[in-house]
Amino acid sequence: MIATTAAIEGGAALAHGPDRNWGYPPACCHGDPVSGDCGKIPSATVTPRPDGYVIILRPGDHQKITHQNRYFVPYDVVVPSGDDYFHICLHPTEEDENCFFAPADAM
């Protein structure tokens, strides 16, 4: 996650994203909008806890999910999303959360 933060703060070029106004940092995204590992997820899959977010994804919630997965993301590694949605990057497998994005009003 340190590399992700450095890439974002360093103003590195952005990889593909959910719209033309912002994109996922290259340290987070491996692929393109169709085959990539980043995508918007339903807000109902995200639960805030005192120490971070718990995310439970099922097939249909994200393009890489084939079975239910649970992730925990501490608040100090959450990246602000460029829109009003939650996004997650899963790499190298669907069990591995690489980057998690939250809307500014949820942080």
Rank of each mutant, 00 (worst) to 15 (best):
M1C: 04
M1P: 01
I2R: 14
A3C: 08
A6H: 08
A6G: 01
A7N: 13
I8K: 14
E9V: 03
E9I: 01
E9S: 07
G10E: 06
G11L: 04
L14Q: 11
A15S: 15
G17S: 09
G17A: 09
G17P: 06
P18G: 15
P18R: 12
D19P: 02
R20H: 05
N21V: 00
N21R: 07
G23Y: 09
G23R: 10
Y24W: 12
P25C: 12
P26R: 14
A27G: 06
C28S: 15
H30Q: 14
H30R: 13
D32E: 13
D32C: 10
D32Y: 13
D32R: 15
G39Y: 01
K40Q: 14
I41G: 04
I41E: 09
P42T: 09
S43T: 11
S43Y: 09
A44Q: 11
A44F: 08
T45V: 13
T45F: 05
T45I: 08
P48F: 00
R49M: 06
P50L: 12
P50R: 15
D51S: 06
G52T: 13
Y53N: 01
Y53L: 08
I55R: 00
I56L: 07
L57H: 06
P59M: 01
G60P: 08
G60H: 12
Q63W: 02
Q63N: 15
K64I: 09
K64L: 14
T66E: 13
T66C: 08
T66F: 02
T66I: 03
H67E: 08
Q68Y: 03
N69H: 10
N69P: 00
N69R: 15
N69A: 13
R70H: 10
Y75K: 08
Y75V: 00
V77Q: 11
V78Y: 06
V79S: 00
P80D: 11
S81L: 09
S81F: 11
D83C: 10
D84L: 05
D84N: 15
Y85N: 14
F86Q: 06
H87R: 05
I88R: 01
I88E: 00
C89W: 02
L90D: 11
H91D: 09
H91S: 13
H91I: 06
P92N: 04
T93A: 02
T93E: 05
T93W: 04
E94A: 06
E94W: 02
E95L: 03
D96N: 15
N98K: 15
C99K: 01
F101D: 04
A102T: 09
A102Y: 03
P103V: 01
A104W: 14
D105A: 07
D105P: 00
A106N: 02
M107N: 10
